[in-house]
Amino acid sequence: MDSQVQSFAVANLRRRPVAVETGGFVAGFNPDTDSPYLNYATPLPGAEPTERDVAALISVFRERGLLPRLEFAPEAAPGVAPALRAAGFGTEAVHEYLVCTPSTLTPAHSADAPRVETPATDEEYAALDAALAEAFGGVFASSAQGAARLRRTQQGGGAVRFVRDPQGGCAGGASCSPPAEDTAELSGVGTRPAHRGRGIAAAVTAALTGAMFAQGTGSVWLEYSGEGSRRVYERVGYRPQGTRLYLSMPPKQRP
Score class of each variant (00 low, 15 high):
L38H: 01
R244G: 08
V60L: 02
N39Y: 05
R235M: 01
R198Y: 03
L132F: 08
G216I: 08
G169D: 11
S177V: 01
L44Y: 02
R16C: 05
G146F: 00
A76W: 10
A194M: 04
N12F: 14
K252I: 14
P17W: 12
T104Q: 06
Q215D: 12
A120W: 07
T153C: 15
R254C: 10
T121Y: 10
P102D: 07
F61E: 05
Y233E: 02
G172H: 11
V139K: 05
R235Y: 11
Q154W: 10
G157E: 11
L247D: 01
L208H: 04
A206D: 04
Q154C: 05
E92T: 09
V18T: 14
A93G: 03
A131H: 01
A202Y: 03
L245P: 04
G157Q: 12
S103T: 11
T118R: 15
G199T: 12
E185D: 15
L105D: 03
I58H: 04
T121R: 10
T209G: 02
G169A: 11
R62T: 09
T191Y: 07
E234S: 07
V220K: 02
E181W: 05
E181Q: 13
G242T: 05
Y37Q: 08
V160D: 11
S35C: 00
G172Y: 07
A135N: 08
V139P: 00
S229W: 03
P179R: 00
A120D: 14
P31K: 05
A87L: 14
P114D: 01
E63N: 14
E227N: 05
A126C: 04
G226T: 03
L13V: 04
E92M: 13
G199I: 13
V26H: 00
A148V: 09
L98I: 10
E117G: 00
E71W: 08
G24R: 00
E51K: 13
E234R: 13
Y238F: 15
Y97L: 07
T101S: 10
L13P: 02
G88V: 07
A141S: 13
R230I: 03
V160H: 03
L132S: 15
C100K: 00
G156A: 15
P119N: 13
R69A: 07
E48T: 13
L186S: 08
L128H: 14
D53V: 00
A55P: 05
E21C: 05
R230Q: 15
G197R: 09
T106A: 15
L98G: 06
Y37S: 14
P82A: 10
R244W: 04
V204K: 02
A47C: 07
R161L: 06
T106D: 14
V54L: 14
A108H: 01
A203G: 01
P250L: 13
Q4P: 00
G169Q: 10
A56R: 13
V160L: 14
Q4C: 11
A47N: 11
A81Q: 06
A147E: 07
G157Y: 06
P36Q: 07
M1E: 10
A214D: 15
G216H: 10
G137D: 12
Q154N: 09
L57N: 11
A131V: 12
E51H: 12
L66C: 07
F72G: 02
P102I: 04
L247N: 09
P43K: 06
E92I: 01
A47Y: 02
C170P: 06
L38E: 09
Y224H: 15
P179M: 00
L132A: 12
